[in-house]
Each structure stands twice: as structure tokens, then as C-alpha cells.
């Protein structure tokens, strides 16, 4: 994982990006993209093989859960609130036109449980937590802290990645559900304010529309997002070498990779579960 030959450092892209030849530029990006996915998959395999053997540092996992929760609570809440406001306003407007205003609650909650909740939590955790994991591990790489662990015969994957990964897959569903509820509160307020729908009617419609399957998909998406954020952030952190400027590059890389992957996999899951037959 951490030896020099399999490294994609910020350096590669930085040097190559000065070359004006667009083909070479694309090649560099494509090549490093394939490498990145490979590194993430290798790391994920190692992580799961440790988890399945019970090699989990629970106190550290709890500490990481606290960090993720603490860092994300406010931003996830705020983004979910305002996404909920905007979305409910649009939905209310259209449904009122069709005279279907009693269905507002159902449509809003469907959007929230199937798409908006997991995406909002995923993207905000990617920006807030993934980036800081990437920065932290990159710093540890370039200041030889990871080397020091290896000399002390401590496996960096077990010591650093497993607790972060565990925290990711535990906290992401929690934050997704939380985002969904905040969005629902926003929806109730908009439905009442803009379309005069009482909260009870709104919630009735929610109950009639949401199925058990929607919860399963919700948690599946959250689990995948947790996996994406922590795995890519850790893989980027542990494969970066160089100097202090590479910390910033790794942070950016981590945000771009995790967010892109979240949107891609969100669509994959949606298309596998909700495509009309």
C-alpha cells in the first residue's frame, strides 16, 4: 500500500498538468484514475479481512464516530433543511396546480428517503470528514508517522483505517436518517405555509406512500456512501508522498473522488431498485 512504486502523488498530476498536450493530460488522468480505484479496492479488501477476523479497535471506533458525528451534525442538518425547503416548495406548487395537494407529504418523503437523505448526508460527510481524513493520513505519511507504526509492527490499516471505516458505516446511516427527518420537518412547514396542508394530512400521506423497501434502499445507500467516503479518503491519504503542499492536493482529490463516486453509486442503486419494469 505504502511503497513508492504504487504511489499516485499529487506530484504526478501537477507536473503533467503543465504539459499543454490534451491527450497526455487525459492519459495521466485516466491512468491515475484506474490506479486510484485499484488502490481503494485493495484497501477495502484488507479492511474487510481485518473486520471479519474481529480485529476492530472499538474505543478508537467510538472516538471516530464522535468525530464524524460532531463534525457533520450541523452541516448535514442545515443542508437537509434548505434542500427540504426548496424541494417541498417546488413539489407543493406543482401538486397544488393538479389539485393533488394531499399527496405533498408522500412525494416529499419519497424524495427524501430514496434520494435526498442519503445524498445530502453523503456529500456533506465527504466534504467535512473525508477531506479531513485524507489530510490527516497524508500528513502522517509525509511526516513518517506511518513508517513509525510499521517499525513498531503496528498494521496501519488495522490501526487507522478499520476504526475510520467502521465509524463511517455506522455514522452514515445515522446521519442519513437525521437528514431525512430534518427534510421532513422542512416539508411539513412548507406544505402548511405554502399550500395550507396541516401536518396531520402531510404525515398521513407519508405513511401511505413509504414502503419498507424504501428504508432498505435508504440504508443500503448510506452504507455504500460510508464505504466510499472512508475508503477513498484513506486510500488517498496512504498513497500520497511528498511535501506539505501534497496535503492540500490530497484533500481536494479526496473530495472530488468521494463526491463523484457517491453520485455514481447513488444512481446505480436507484436504477437497480426503482427502474420501471
Amino acid at each position: 500500500m505504502s511503497n513508492g512504486s504504487s504511489t499516485i502523488s499529487g506530484n504526478d498530476l501537477r507536473r503533467k498538468s503543465r504539459i499543454p498536450n490534451p491527450i497526455a493530460f487525459l492519459e495521466a488522468y485516466f491512468g491515475s484514475g484506474v490506479k486510484m480505484i485499484g488502490l481503494a479496492l485493495i484497501l477495502l479488501t484488507k479492511t474487510w479481512s481485518l473486520i471479519l477476523r474481529g480485529r476492530i479497535d472499538w474505543p478508537e471506533t467510538v472516538r471516530q464516530c464522535e468525530m464524524i458525528g460532531l463534525k457533520s451534525f450541523l452541516v448535514v442538518g442545515l443542508t437537509a433543511l434548505f434542500t427540504g425547503f426548496a424541494m417541498s416548495l417546488q413539489i407543493s406548487r406543482e401538486l397544488v396546480l393538479f389539485g393533488a395537494d394531499t399527496a405533498i407529504g408522500g412525494v416529499v418523503s419519497l424524495a427524501l428517503i430514496r434520494e435526498i437523505g442519503p445524498i445530502t448526508a453523503g456529500v456533506m460527510v465527504a466534504g467535512r470528514v473525508g477531506s479531513s481524513i485524507a489530510a490527516e493520513l497524508t500528513t502522517m505519511m509525509i511526516t513518517e508517522q506511518i513508517d513509525a507504526l510499521q517499525v513498531m509492527r503496528i498494521d496501519p490499516v488495522e490501526f487507522l483505517v478499520v476504526p475510520r471505516y467502521m465509524a463511517g458505516i455506522l455514522m452514515m446511516p445515522t446521519l442519513s436518517v437525521y437528514a431525512m427527518f430534518i427534510g421532513l420537518i422542512a416539508g411539513i412547514n412548507i406544505a402548511y405555509g405554502a399550500a395550507n396542508i396541516p401536518a396531520a394530512t402531510f404525515l398521513d400521506s407519508v405513511k401511505q406512500t413509504i414502503l419498507e423497501r424504501d428504508f432498505v434502499v435508504h440504508f443500503l445507500k448510506a452504507f455504500i456512501n460510508g464505504t466510499i467516503v472512508t475508503t477513498f479518503a484513506c486510500a488517498i491519504g496512504l498513497s500520497t508522498k511528498g511535501g506539505a503542499e501534497d496535503v492540500g492536493i490530497a484533500t481536494t482529490r479526496s473530495i472530488v473522488w468521494t463526491m463523484t463516486m457517491i453520485f455514481v453509486f447513488n444512481f446505480v442503486v436507484t436504477s437497480l431498485t426503482y427502474a420501471p419494469r
Binding site: 502522517m140 511526516t143 513518517e144 508517522q145 513508517d147 507504526l149
Partner: peptide, 21 residues
């Protein structure tokens, strides 16, 4: 045992915890 040229202490751990590791 290796004494690193650049110390390489684990930043988020105290002196005691570094030695415990």
C-alpha cells in the same frame, strides 16, 4: 528500533501513548 531523523511521533497521541504503542 529506529530513531527517525524527523522524530515521526504520532501527532494525535501523547508522549505516554506514543511509548505505549
Amino acid at each position: 528500533g529506529l530513531v527517525f531523523q524527523g522524530s515521526a511521533l504520532l501527532n494525535s497521541y501523547t508522549v505516554r501513548e506514543n511509548l505505549q504503542l
